[in-house]
Amino acid sequence: MERRQQVKKSRLSADDWADAALAAIGAGGGLAAVAVEPLAARLGATKGSFYWHFGNREALIEAALARWVETDTEQIIAAMQTEPDPEKRLRRLFTEVTRPAKHDPLELSLLASVGHPQVAAALKQVTERRIGYLTGLFTELGFTDAEARRRGLMAYNFYLGHTQLGHAVPSALPSAAEFPGYVEAVVGALLQRA
């Protein structure tokens, strides 16, 4: 994602370091890529800059994961709330998160690192928040609590499966021209009442 592209600045912030850590994780290095010296080189900074903001590597990982939760979940949900109609919100959400998912390997890299306690906690937080948000949309659309939860879980599974497929076999996904119809079919299936 564009926000993860690093630009040399005269004074780096903790967010710059967190973004660099996320970019390194997503670039295929996983958590092992979160190392002070390579990140400092990438940022054109010194290790002193790192230690100005963080006491150790684990503190950077924690900050990076918090930034990921904020930018890839909370900010997206906040942006969706500008649409008053829950059905339009659901369609917009699917369109906005599924299209770029195949180009951003960060989430899959984090899922592959679920054995790390900090990553596991962040993934749990994000998963619960996202499914909760989707469940709320289906509740607003008139589904019972149990049915809304079931559909929220199915919607989130679709997103994760789409993301995985986009990285494993991108040719299996619809073309850009087919994408709107693809999203419409998925949302239509999720909204269908028995």
Rank of each mutant, 00 (worst) to 15 (best):
L137W: 07
L137E: 06
A146L: 11
A112W: 00
Q125A: 13
L123P: 01
K124D: 15
E128Q: 15
A148V: 02
R151L: 15
L110D: 05
V119N: 08
Y156F: 14
T135N: 01
E128D: 15
F138H: 09
L110G: 01
G136T: 02
Y133T: 06
F138K: 08
N157F: 11
V114F: 12
R150A: 15
L134C: 07
F158I: 09
E147P: 00
Y156M: 11
T144K: 04
L111V: 08
Q118L: 15
F143S: 09
A146K: 11
L137N: 00
A120S: 14
A155Q: 05
A155R: 01
A112H: 01
R130F: 05
P117K: 02
A148L: 02
L137V: 10
M154Y: 08
E128W: 09
T135M: 03
V119F: 11
R129V: 08
I131H: 04
P117D: 07
A146G: 07
L141T: 06
D145V: 10
L137I: 12
G152D: 09
Q125H: 13
P117Q: 07
Y133M: 05
A112I: 00
R130Q: 15
L134P: 04
T144G: 12
A112Y: 00
K124H: 13
Y133R: 01
R151A: 04
L123H: 08
G136Q: 04
L141P: 08
V114M: 12
A148T: 03
Q125N: 11
L134A: 11
F138V: 01
L141S: 03
A120L: 10
L123R: 04
T135E: 13
G152I: 07
H116R: 11
M154K: 06
